[in-house]
Each structure stands twice: as C-alpha cells, then as structure tokens.
C-alpha cells in the first residue's frame, strides 16, 4: 500500500516534469478554453440570447467549465495510448513497482491538470464579468461537480487509450468529443434546437454538470421543464457515478488483459 502511493506519486510527478519541460504546450492547453470563451462570449455572444433573459457570458462560463473537462478526455487518451504504443507501459509492468500506480498516477496528474485549467478559466470568467452569485460554499460545490465529471471521464480516456492504444487515433477521439461537447447545453440553450436534438442535448452528462453548476453559482440557466432540466444536480452526481461504474472496471480489465 505504501508503494502504491509512492509509485503513484512518482508517475504523477513525471507529468508535472512534462509541464516544466514543455511550458509552451501546457500554456497553449490552458489558453485554448480561454480562447473559446472569448470567441463565444464576444464573437458569437451578440447573437445569443439566454431564455429568461440573463447575461450570455454568465450563462457561458459554467458551460465552459464543464466543456473543458470533456476536452480533458483527449489529454488522457493521448498520454495513455502513447505510453502503450511506445512500450513505456510494458516497461512499467516489468518493474517491481505497484502496478496500480500506472493508472492512479495518471488519474492524479490529469485531475491536477484539469484543476489548473479550471483555475485559469475561473480567472478568465471573473475578467469577463462572470460572478459566483450564490456564495463561496455553493461555488465550491459547483467546482467539485465539474471536477467529478473530469474524474469520471478519466476512466473512459484510460479505457480507450488501453483498448485502442494508437496515439494516431487521437483525431478519432477528437471527432467523438466535439459533437458530445456541442450537443449539450454548455454553449447554447437546447430550447433553440429541433425537439429531438434538444432532448439528446438535455440528457447529455455534460449538460447536467453545466446546468448544476449554473444553479449552484446562481447564474442564469436556460430554464427547461423536463425532468433532466429540473434535476440537474442529481444528474450531475448520477451521470459521473454511472460512467465510473462502467469504465473503471473496464479500465482495470483492459490493464490486466495486457497480460493476456
């Protein structure tokens, strides 16, 4: 158990060293969501209306927090598949280290990365006029739910990385991530979409987290009277738990399967 933690930390520190060695990459990664905020907030924002008449940028920020967590899936996939393809995972498995550390270290590093991205994005939000209106306690809860989504998607990313194992398939993951990201209430209200599309967007796990965060921050939501829209917080807890329940065991199985 002691080694499981020590080895996990060694693997996490490896990622922190990546950041230090490649500051350009990490800064670009952190600024990408900021760019989207500026793009949607100012370029497209003029054409956006929030049902019920709130400020669009106040509506946008919680959506962006959640969307950034979904983008994190690409980071996880890229790292896991590169290690598998380059034989680094095999080298880890041939060492007398705790084998769980390969996965837990990765999870911790990605969560740290996402927490940092979230901090930058919060700063960006404050700069463009977004506020957590409902107090720090509820705001912390909102950020916790956002990170919970990231934690859940970690296991999907690890599973995909182990099963597909090809770094060049990252493009396919991106193609998968974007529709999931946009077919949600993160950037626009599902009420503006055709009925069936809006229904999918409403039930998207990303929408649940975005809507729950809006509620907890006291930001304008898009309203909506469906069950999903009315129970955003419940769903924002339930969806990640379901994803973890499915992909955590699948990831562990895929990792063990490497041993045939």
């Amino acid at each position: 158990m002691r080694w499981a933690i020590a080895d996990g930390w060694t693997i996490t520190r490896r990622d922190l060293a990546h950041w230090a060695n490649q500051p350009g990459q990490i800064v670009a990664g952190l600024l990408f969501p900021v760019m989207i905020v500026l793009m949607f907030g100012y370029l497209f924002g003029g054409g956006m209306t929030v049902p019920g008449g709130g400020d669009y940028r106040e509506f946008l920020m919680p959506g962006m927090f959640a969307l950034t967590m979904v983008f994190g899936l690409e980071t996880t996939y890229a790292a896991v598949s590169a290690d598998a393809a380059r034989g680094v995972t095999d080298r880890f498995r041939s060492l007398p280290m705790a084998s769980s550390a390969v996965v837990t270290g990765r999870a911790a590093a990605d969560l740290l990365n996402s927490a940092l991205a979230l901090a930058v994005l919060v700063g960006c939000g404050l700069a463009v006029g977004w506020r957590a209106e409902a107090g720090p306690g509820r705001a912390a809860l909102a950020l916790g739910l956002v990170l919970l989504l990231r934690f859940a998607l970690l296991w999907l990313g690890i599973w995909l990385g182990l099963v597909v194992g090809k770094p060049e398939a990252l493009v396919a993951v991106q193609i998968l991530v974007w529709p999931v990201g946009f077919l949600s209430s993160a950037l626009v209200s599902p009420a503006t979409m055709p009925g069936w599309l809006g229904a999918i967007a409403e039930w998207n796990p990303l929408s649940a987290t975005a809507a729950a965060a809006r509620e907890l921050f006291g930001n304008p939501g898009w309203g909506g009277d469906s069950w999903a829209a009315q129970h955003a917080i419940t769903l924002a807890v339930a969806w990640p738990l379901v994803i973890v329940a499915v992909f955590f065991p699948l990831s562990i199985r895929a990792f063990r399967r490497l041993g045939g």
């Binding site: 060694t10 490896r14 060293a17 060695n21 490649q22 034989g87 680094v88 080298r91 007398p96 280290m97």
Partner: peptide, 29 residues
Amino acid sequence: HIGLVGQHAAVDELLTGRQNLAMFARLSH
C-alpha cells in the same frame, strides 16, 4: 531480477535522459 529492453525505445520522450533514469530508479524503489 530482470532488465527488459524491448523493441521500442521505451523511454519518456518529454523527460530528459536523467529524469527518465531517475524515474525508473524510483519505480524500482
């Protein structure tokens, strides 16, 4: 009791040579 050198150069490309070896040494406890 073993060392493995596989078909790929299984090193972390983003780490320096020294960081790579130190990491594997830490993982060898």
